[in-house]
């Protein structure tokens, strides 16, 4: 103990051993958790995905690719989830971008209050904010009202993919706004003035200055939103009444009801792979676009 308390203990041999010990101790709890609650469970899932279903459910060791074959044959829930998550990400972006721009450049002195007002919903219960739409969209309220406008007494909003989409956009909107706001807030405003002085219109300025600057935030936000949307379970269950068969439902069905762990595991592996591939393609696409635009901006500048 005495050596540890002397200044610059790392210089002495005993101090170095103590220092290594301290490092190990600091990392120990997190390492245990990562091992037993992440690496091993995910390892089990990957291993199970090559196994066979035991006779009374569960898993029996084997090596087969049948599970993956089956996943490829019944890819509908994947496509359905991919469709909803893509549409949800795009809509969220559409709503978030103008707001983030407004907050970063036009909100003035009340900016702090506006941001706090965004943090509050983000901070309050996701489940409660989701189920509340049951009241809002219900037949007694908005659902009935729209049905009345359409003259269709059987019109329902709840239990449809549209309701799920609304829930997705609603639930994940703050996650898109925050990163966009942060990047736009750091933007050098003189660039916009320069662009305008050089005669660029609003649209040209937005496309050639603001958008490229917002791009890192846009990518972060899209990824933050797309991932949970892809595997979302609560919103489709509550607002979709579990009628739209998404990947979350499929996984729960395989693991808990059919007790076909190997098939469920294969689906989980494919889900993660799909997500990683989608994100990589997206990032690659955006980077390529940015390079192309970067050249465009430079090229358009008068000599």
């Amino acid at each position: 103990m005495a050596t540890a308390l002397t200044p610059t203990p790392a210089r002495t041999g005993g101090g170095r051993a103590k220092s290594a010990l301290l490092t190990g101790a600091l990392l120990l709890p997190a390492s245990i958790w990562y091992l037993f609650l992440l690496v091993l469970p995910m390892g089990f899932v990957v291993a199970f995905s090559f196994g066979e279903k035991a006779r009374n459910g569960g898993y029996t060791p084997a090596f087969t690719l049948d599970n993956y074959g089956q996943v490829m044959k019944g890819a509908d829930p994947f496509l359905e989830s991919l469709k909803l998550a893509t549409a949800g990400t795009f809509l969220t972006l559409l709503v978030a971008l103008p707001l983030a721009y407004f907050l970063a450049t036009r909100a003035g002195s009340r900016k702090g209050l506006f941001v706090l007002l965004l943090v509050i919903p983000f901070w309050t219960s996701f489940l409660i904010r989701t189920y509340s739409w049951l009241i809002v969209l219900g037949r007694g309220n908005l659902g009935g009202f729209i049905g009345g406008l359409l003259g269709d007494p059987n019109f329902r909003l709840l239990g449809t993919p549209g309701a799920i989409l609304l829930g997705l956009v609603y639930g994940y909107l703050p996650l898109m706004i925050f990163p966009l706001y942060v990047t736009l807030e750091r933007m050098d405003r003189s660039l916009i003035e320069a662009s305008k002085d050089l005669g660029a219109g609003r649209w040209a300025t937005f496309r050639q200055i603001t958008l490229p600057i917002a791009l890192p935030g846009l990518v972060t936000g899209s990824i933050l939103v797309f991932i949970p949307m892809m595997g979302e379970y609560v919103i489709p269950q509550i607002l979709g009444y579990g009628r739209t068969f998404l990947i979350g439902n499929a996984l729960v069905l395989d693991f808990l009801e059919a007790r076909n762990w190997p098939l469920g595991s294969a689906k989980a592996v494919v889900l993660i792979a799909t997500m990683l591939i989608t994100i990589s393609v997206y990032v690659w696409f955006v980077n390529r676009g940015r390079q192309a635009r970067g050249v465009g901006v430079l090229g358009a500048r008068p000599p």
């Binding site: 990562y34 992440l38 469970p41 899932v45 991932i227 996984l251 729960v252 693991f255 469920g264």
Partner: peptide, 24 residues
């Protein structure tokens, strides 16, 4: 190495983590 584990624990969908933990 830790970075990879940290990000994996955050990006893997909750439902997958839940089921993996359950079967484990």
């Amino acid at each position: 190495g830790y970075d990879v584990l940290t990000y994996i624990s955050i990006i893997v969908p909750e439902i997958v983590i839940a089921l993996a933990t359950l079967v484990f």
